[in-house]
Amino acid sequence: MKTDDLINLLGTNIEPVKGGQLRNTLLAALAVGAAGALCLLLLIFGAPGEAIGREYLGLKVLGLAFTLGLVATGASYLLRAARPGEPGRRPLIVIGLLFFALLSASVITLVLSHPAAWGGMIFGPQWAACLICIPLFSIVPFASLVWALRKEAPTNPVWTGAVAGLVAGALGAAAFTLHHSAGSIPFIVLWYGGPIVVCTVVGAILGPRLLRW
């Protein structure tokens, strides 16, 4: 085939491109993913209303702030990584800082409390449920993010996949937080942060396979 023929084919009767297309696709995928995670939560555990006890309200808010903070920062990275070129590292640094801040806070909490209480703080109720449910809840968000990113042109599939996994995991964790409050900060780091990290690693592994274009 002659390149001029191809250029003619590509350039004939082109459609105008709207500016916000990429952004809208990704935000829609995020919304679909969040809705999917919430539906699964309702299906398995029912309405979260009763679970909101006053005792753990602070920790619930902290858990939500942490997970939704990860979602927002990760999404801002994906908006750039979906375009060809260098996405910049600032969002990745913010993500690292969020984890570091929570990790420091949990170390401080442990130091301030009696060692006899550590076991109860770390293995709070339902730690195993976190381990299973957060990755489970993240499947729909991950699938919808990958669907959206495949329409775009990410040139760094490992990092893009990793952050898509992180955002999906954090959405799953945010949904789970609605149902079940952590009993302590170390619990949040371990049983919410841990599964999110697992989702991130899985995303990094799947990225090169799923995001090729």
Binding site: L10, G11, G19, P84, G85, T155
Partner: peptide
């Protein structure tokens, strides 16, 4: 060349109008 031209065309919505064009082309 042809593969890249098809990619440039079918993914042109990924170009951010506020940015330089040449780095976008180079990345693709």
């Amino acid at each position: 060349v042809q593969e890249t031209l098809i990619a440039l065309h079918t993914r042109r919505h990924t170009y951010d109008r506020s940015q330089l064009l040449t780095p976008w082309v180079y990345a693709i």
